[in-house]
Amino acid sequence: MQFTKGVSGNPAGRPKGIKDKHHRYAESIDSMIPQVLESVYQKALAGDMTAARILLDRTLAQQAARMGARGYTTQL
């Protein structure tokens, strides 16, 4: 038998508190959200229709979900 039953191949294991790449990336993105939202908002105000659509799609969908609207679509 190659492995002994009940014995870990890595008894020390990964140290507690070590964060993987995904977790570190998510933390760095979380800190940038306010700046990204402000940038998209300013572009929408300046006439960037893609930025405006992003804002409207996100905010209208959230409002519809809160109000329990059925059949809501973001297609204009």
Rank of each mutant, 00 (worst) to 15 (best):
Q2S: 07
Y25N: 07
T50W: 04
K19H: 08
G9A: 15
L45I: 01
N10L: 10
Q35N: 02
H22E: 12
F3Q: 15
Y25A: 09
L37A: 00
Y72H: 06
L45T: 01
G17R: 08
G17N: 11
F3A: 14
I29P: 02
L76H: 03
P11K: 12
L76V: 09
L37I: 04
Q42K: 07
I54A: 07
G68P: 03
M32W: 04
R24Q: 04
M1Y: 13
M1C: 11
H22P: 00
S8M: 01
R14T: 15
Q75A: 07
F3P: 07
L76T: 02
I18L: 13
A46N: 11
M49S: 04
A65H: 07
Q62Y: 09
P34F: 04
I54M: 09
S31V: 11
D20Y: 14
Y25R: 14
R58S: 12
S31E: 14
R58V: 10
K16A: 15
G9E: 12
S8H: 12
M1I: 15
G6T: 07
K19Q: 10
T50H: 06
K16H: 13
R24I: 15
A46W: 06
T4G: 03
R70M: 13
Y72N: 00
G68C: 11
Q75H: 01
A12V: 05
V40G: 06
V36R: 11
Q35L: 10
A12K: 04
M32F: 08
A64Y: 05
